[in-house]
């Protein structure tokens, strides 16, 4: 299965990656090879197989509604690349 240049560009958009030049060509090449490799799965008839998303078949645990300790504003802003007045600052959105 060959992947089209357009497909790869669309995926780049969805994934917020901006590959260019040689890196992009290499990606297209490897992408196609990997998809060919995946084609092996089509040999199997899985029409009547239940997909397995969780290997543990229990109900998710529930937590009591009690307030616990969190992080301070200092902790949060200490990690942030840019900040202003208690907020994390990000560049122009539109």
């Amino acid at each position: 299965m060959k992947v089209s240049r357009g497909d790869v560009e669309h995926i780049m958009k969805l994934a917020y990656l901006d590959l260019k030049g040689e890196e992009k060509e290499k990606m297209i090449h490897h992408f196609s090879r990997i998809l060919e490799y995946f084609a092996k799965l089509q040999e199997l008839d899985t029409a009547n197989v239940e997909p397995l998303s969780h290997v543990i078949e229990e109900s998710t645990p529930l937590r009591d509604d009690e307030v616990g300790e969190g992080l301070s504003q200092e902790d949060v802003l200490g990690m942030a690349p840019d900040k202003e007045g208690g907020y994390i600052k990000v560049p122009r959105i539109v």
Partner: peptide, 26 residues
Amino acid sequence: IMIGTYVLSAGYYDAFYLKALKVRRL
């Protein structure tokens, strides 16, 4: 990231991701 985004994206989910979940059960 690219492969993962692709196999979950509209139009490819069933053929790749869902298929893989089924084979995972096998």
